[in-house]
């Protein structure tokens, strides 16, 4: 019965598809999706395939998953790459470091970004446009150069150390670079616009009369914020948080430039496993586990995205 049902559904689906294809311009609609399947989903499927292949010396450095020899068709798969990763505390620690970095910096971006987005959105229209342009300029400036700017600032002979010495707080330059605090600072700095812009997008649509209404009805400012402003800007908070959290988990450049050896991060481990150790199966298994860890935030983002961008239809 269930089988029949599903067959019927598939049949219906194909009928719909065919009728639809006759009406619409097929290539206009499907070219971009073909592109994404070919260059986004097939590569992802490929790293899954390589992640369950057996490592081997040679080029490519893994054994084919399927082989057709005289003995017949054979599937040569293994979970050993995954077991290897999850039995080694080195890898687990790097995952946890990345997750805690992403979590800390998302919270910090939210705490710093929310008031800025709020006040920019509440400004008078003329000033608002100028402030918005001022917010977008760092967003457009090269990411790499903004990280590099902090490297210059935090140097032993850098400007922050000089100021602190001048003010008499310290007598000798302290080393502020190459530790995980510098990494957090760099991440918060470079990802702040990703938090502010979606927040701004929701806060600007927000009707200021609601605040007055709440005040008139006797709500304390704290309650007005918690019960009126915050719930209405929640989609912006979630969108911004996901746009910071997800890429930061895989961040490579910032830890490489500002970080030291005190904490290793997921992105760096994949990079080294691939470029230094040349162990493709382990690098692929690391990437796949990264996706698995990120599935939850990614699904939240996707649901939000579908809900808020397509609610009119």
């Amino acid at each position: 019965m269930i089988k029949l049902n599903s067959n019927l559904m598939i049949h219906q689906y194909f009928c719909l598809m065919i009728r639809y294809l006759k009406k619409q311009n097929f290539w206009f609609v499907f070219t971009p999706y073909f592109w994404l399947v070919l260059f986004f989903f097939i590569p992802l499927a490929l790293i899954f395939k390589i992640s369950i292949s057996v490592s081997e010396w040679g080029m490519p450095p893994y054994r084919d998953l399927f082989s057709l020899s005289e003995e017949g068709f054979k599937i040569d798969s293994t979970l050993s790459n995954y077991l290897f990763i999850f039995s080694d505390p080195f890898y687990i620690r790097s995952y946890l470091n990345s997750l805690s970095l992403a979590f800390t910096s998302t919270i910090l971006c939210l705490v710093i970004g929310y008031p800025i987005a709020f006040y920019v959105a509440k400004s008078h229209a003329n000033i608002r446009i100028i402030l918005l342009v001022l917010l977008i300029i760092p967003f457009w400036t090269s990411f790499l150069l903004r990280v590099y700017a902090w490297k210059v600032l935090l140097q032993g002979s850098g400007i922050i150390n000089s100021i602190l010495i001048h003010l008499g707080f310290i007598t000798e330059p302290i080393s502020m670079l190459h530790n995980h605090y510098a990494v957090i600072l760099g991440v918060v700095y470079t990802y702040l616009p990703f938090m502010i812009l979606p927040l701004y997008g929701y806060l600007v649509k927000f009707d200021l009369n609601l605040i007055d209404a709440a005040n008139d009805l006797g709500a304390k400012p704290v309650n007005t914020f918690l019960k009126v402003i915050l719930p209405l800007s929640l989609p912006g908070i979630i969108a911004g948080s996901m746009l910071v959290f997800i890429p930061v988990v895989g961040e490579f450049v910032i830890p490489e430039m500002l970080g030291g050896s005190d904490k290793l991060y997921f992105g760096k481990i994949i990079w080294d496993e691939f470029f230094v150790n040349r162990d493709w199966p382990v690098a692929s298994a690391l990437a796949m586990s990264g996706i698995v860890i990120l599935v939850f935030p990614i699904v939240i983002f996707q649901l939000m995205y579908a809900k808020y961008n397509f609610k009119n239809e």
Partner: peptide, 24 residues
Amino acid sequence: FFIFLSSSPLVMPEIILGLSLLLF
């Protein structure tokens, strides 16, 4: 499904995207 297809690259860490494309 198409919405999912078109918005997935937004939320894929660069390092995974780069690795998968290279291997591809």
